[in-house]
Nucleic acid binder design. Structure first.
Lengths: 231, 231
DNA sequence: TGTTATATCTCGAAC
DNA sequence: GTTCGAGGTATAACA
């Protein structure tokens, strides 16, 4: 990993064209050749970057560039696409390289898959008398998150999202349309379950006869394992 | 901006729990207090991070931690949410701070807005005799990208995407449903225009009587301004 | 300030 | 390899 702090201007041409005026920034060159340009604020996202696989080559500035104060030009080209990142270096404040070695990678847990698992275990949250048929019930257009039966034995299809958006309602609608063509299952009703359901999505769901269910993740997790949070 | 290269392990607790085992990484502390942890590969995204506003405090390791080789513990807490990032530092290979100053920010051009502008200017791409009614035609459920009339004077609603996905077809369908309720406009036909249209989206569109139009961005831009690409 | 749509989205998994 | 869905999405535009 190479760290360069320098006054620089940057141009990118690829899926869009973008320009960074002259300013002091951090240029990060990783072992895989990828390049990130970061400013001193606005975390997370680099101002400009090039993803691997790519190659970096350094050029001497031409007459005009040297007159403008450019000490070196870096050309970073993507190997597959025609994306190009051009960095014009002026004063270099810092330049160091470091050997870091492989990274074991991030271990994460607890997202939509967890919600699905918890709701399958706590299926009565759908209402009294509900029973789980199966998770990830496969159809021609994809898996239904949860298939269950209600107190009367009728089939219920559940779509689970962390954030219930209009897209999720459309998705569930397509599933319901398909499932209701199966005489062995029909009539199938729908439940749209999410931690948070957007008003637009709720309106659309209700309009289509789909029931909305807000899930309390912390409460569901608390039932499952009261000490699962780190702190 | 502070740059620290160190062997470290990292724990995050917030919307999910995540753990990074001991390895050598770059820790970047920005002027706004935000923190990024980067490995030497996989560009763009930090392994772990904390967004501003947040506060960083350093602690002495306790007995057990010191025995395990921990030289310092950084606790980064988000000011508003309860998100917490815990960095256990072992050997520190590099530690430097730098003054960067304000960044003028990125100037970008050419995305969906540009496509919309170009298609409005080159409305005949929709077919002979088409005329622009207006861009961003407002409705109760949002703006229709382009409203036009065809050779016979019938209304045409155009939805523009860079990548034509199923969502875009659903969106256009909702617009058409609404527009066709207006006796002054009906019948309104639909055109789904994108640089690239996914097969599923095309199938759905055709099934609903929506015409698909693939846009050649470079050609459209070439008509507009032949020397607008950087290289 | 809250909500919606976009992104050089990134990233991973399923097909 | 391509497609699809999720993300601690982030971030800009807009009401």
């Amino acid at each position: 990993m190479r760290l360069v702090l320098a006054r620089c201007s940057v141009d990118y041409a690829g899926r869009l064209s973008a320009h960074l005026p002259l300013a002091t920034r951090l240029i990060l060159v990783k072992a895989d050749g990828s390049v990130l340009v970061h400013s001193d604020s606005l975390s997370y996202k680099p101002l400009n970057w090039m993803s691997p696989p790519c190659t970096l080559s350094e050029f001497e500035p031409d007459e005009d560039q040297r007159a403008a104060g450019v000490s070196a030009v870096w050309k970073v080209m993507h190997t597959k696409t025609a994306d190009l990142l051009l960095i014009s270096l002026h004063e270099v404040l810092h330049d160091s390289s470091h050997e870091l070695g492989e990274d074991p990678g991030l271990q994460k847990d607890g997202v939509e898959a967890h919600l699905q698992k918890l709701l399958a275990e706590q299926i009565s949250l759908l209402g009294d008398g509900h029973r789980l048929v199966r998770r990830e019930y496969m159809t021609a257009i994809g898996p239904v998150d949860i298939l269950a039966t209600d107190g009367t034995g009728s089939t219920v299809a559940v779509e689970i999202k962390r954030r219930g958006d209009i897209d999720g309602v459309e998705q569930l609608t397509r599933y319901l349309e398909l499932l209701n063509r199966d005489p062995l299952l029909a009539p199938v009703s729908g439940v749209f379950a999410a931690q948070e359901i957007k008003p637009q999505a709720r309106t659309l769901a209700i309009d289509r006869g789909i029931r909305c269910l807000t899930l309390d993740y912390d409460a569901m997790r608390g039932v499952d394992d009261p000490h699962s949070r780190l702190f």
